[in-house]
């Protein structure tokens, strides 16, 4: 039985399809199988919060499915809205490339490797929870995670840690959550609007467009 090719591959554009890396103005329909495999590979190889770099590398540089601008606009949405960047990006990019089914396929691809592995480890952990070696190794991993999260927080916040108003927002958020134990929902509903108001459009510096010196001729 060698007739089980995914039907999407048999799209009549086959022979006329543009060569890889052709002008992104007329993107060819991305085959579902390739969409799945690409996100599966990202899901199996990205670690430690660095998933954005992996996504950009695969989607923009290697596959050319998105240009830089469309990638950044998807990232902007992923970051401003709830959820993890990795899964939100998979859903948005999948939708832009192949609609609703594409977003489901991309989402399953990026989560499947980690989900399988974490379940294997989780089941092993549940049956070895009292094993002193397992506990010692996990205490080490937990401590390492603290170091990694600290590094990632500094990396992501490098711009914010240099502005006093942002440092104030960071300190207020940490105090409310870690020391006053205010529920996250109230922190989001109070600090969020205040922070956006602080940066209301009239307070923003003009965007950094290159100055156009269009003087009257």
């Amino acid at each position: 039985m060698n007739t089980s090719l995914p039907p999407v591959e048999a799209a009549p554009t086959g022979p006329d399809a543009p060569p890889p890396g052709a002008a992104p103005t007329a993107p060819a329909k991305v085959p579902m199988a390739e969409l799945f495999i690409t996100f599966l590979i990202i899901g199996a190889t990205s670690f430690g919060g660095g998933v954005v770099a992996y996504l950009r590398n695969a989607l923009v540089l290697q596959k050319g499915w998105l240009d830089e601008e469309r990638f950044l606009s998807a990232l902007e949405i992923s970051q401003a809205l709830p959820g993890l960047n990795a899964t939100n990006m998979a859903i948005i990019v999948g939708d832009r490339l192949r609609g609703v089914v594409g977003s489901v396929v991309a989402f399953l691809g990026i989560t499947l490797p980690g989900a399988t592995l974490v379940m294997v480890l989780g089941v092993l952990y549940a049956s070895n929870a009292k094993n002193p070696y397992v506990n010692a190794a996990l205490i080490g991993v937990g401590a390492a995670a603290v170091g990694m999260l600290t590094a990632v927080t500094f990396q992501i916040g490098r711009k914010q840690f240099g502005k006093w108003i942002d440092v104030a927002i960071i300190l207020v958020t940490v105090t409310l959550i870690n020391y006053l134990h205010v529920s996250l929902i109230w922190v989001l509903l109070t600090v969020g609007p205040v922070a956006v108001f602080i940066y209301r459009p009239s307070q923003l510096e003009p965007p950094s467009v290159p100055p156009k010196q269009e003087t009257v001729p």
């Binding site: 902007e76 970051q79 401003a80 205490i139 937990g142 401590a143 995670a145 603290v146 999260l149 600290t150 990632v152 927080t153 992501i156 916040g157 711009k159 914010q160 840690f161 502005k163 108003i165 942002d166 440092v167 927002i169 960071i170 300190l171 207020v172 958020t173 940490v174 959550i177 870690n178 996250l184 922190v187 989001l188 600090v191 969020g192 922070a195 956006v196 108001f197 602080i198 940066y199 209301r200 459009p201 923003l204 965007p207």
Partner: peptide, 27 residues
């Protein structure tokens, strides 16, 4: 842009809070 600029420090604050919360049991 206001949304992005305003939410950025909040997100960094939430990440710091998450780190502190894990550190309390892990360290």
């Amino acid at each position: 842009r206001s949304l992005q600029e305003g939410l950025a420090p909040l997100v960094v604050g939430l990440m710091a809070a998450g780190t502190i919360s894990i550190a309390r049991t892990a360290i």
